[in-house]
């Protein structure tokens, strides 16, 4: 250990500083774009899992089980290497050759669909927690079932889900590091690259660790604001930080 020669200045040396900064930007882009897909798809999946139609339930259930039980890295490889081969020749060709930043979009879709199945389960749990009594109450007041979903179950169920979303949001940033396996030059990939060039691995991995810590802190604080605004009066989660 004593033979290690420290050089913290490496972090602000050109061109490495720009590589690291661009790595941070790509990490944030991949995670945020994936999050958009995850939230949208996850909400649909969560609601669909509470429906009565057996066909819908079976399809959505199969989706959730598949994406939950295959390692994320394998999913990324399937999207990146296998999907273009299974598509019609022209579409596969477009994915492989013509789509700009194909590895970025692949990472976004993989992370998005993977996180969506986890969010779907949270949304389902949120809706199921209130469904029984409130569905009956809603139907009794003369609402139709779609109206019950639109005005009661979805808005209220969603607000129950918010605390659980915080950890999924943090996870998508952490999981975005897997994008390096298909060549996305995000933060972990960039710091490893500079570490290999300069042999200053400790400084670089420390920098990466600090950035991930900052991301976690920022997400936690931002979600706490969302949690406070989405809080349901009278629920246990509001008692903790109550007036």
């Amino acid at each position: 250990m004593e033979r290690y020669s420290w050089n913290w200045a490496i972090l602000v040396t050109e061109p490495y500083v720009y590589w690291i900064l661009s790595g941070i930007v790509w990490t944030i882009l991949v995670a945020l774009a994936g999050w958009v897909i995850a939230l949208a798809l996850g909400s649909v999946v969560g609601v669909a899992r509470t429906l009565r139609q057996p066909v819908v339930r079976a399809i959505v259930g199969a989706y959730v089980e598949t994406f939950r039980n295959v390692p994320l890295l394998v999913q990324i490889f399937l999207w990146y290497f296998v999907l273009p081969e299974l598509l019609p020749a022209a579409a596969g060709q477009w994915l492989k050759r013509d789509l700009p930043h194909a590895e970025f979009w692949t990472a976004v879709v993989s992370l998005g669909t993977y996180t969506a199945c986890r969010i779907g389960e949270q949304v389902r749990a949120g809706i199921e927690a209130i469904a029984k009594g409130q569905t009956h109450a809603g139907l009794a007041t003369g609402l139709t079932l779609p109206q019950v979903y639109r005005h009661i179950l979805v808005p209220v169920g969603f607000r129950m889900t918010v605390p659980a979303l915080t950890s999924e949001f943090i996870n998508i940033f952490k999981n975005s590091a897997l994008a390096l396996t298909i060549g996305v030059l995000e933060l972990t990939s960039r710091t490893r690259q500079v570490a290999e060039y300069t042999y200053q691995a400790i400084e670089l991995f420390t920098a990466a660790t600090v950035v991930y810590a900052l991301i976690t802190l920022i997400v936690t604080f931002a979600m706490r604001v969302v949690e406070r605004r989405a809080r349901l009066p009278g629920m246990i989660q509001s008692a903790r930080t109550g007036p």
């Binding site: 943090i170 952490k174 999981n175 975005s176 590091a177 972990t188 991995f205 660790t209 991930y212």
Partner: peptide, 11 residues
Amino acid sequence: RLLPLILLIFW
């Protein structure tokens, strides 16, 4: 818990 597992493996 805040580290990506890949980064820890590199560490």
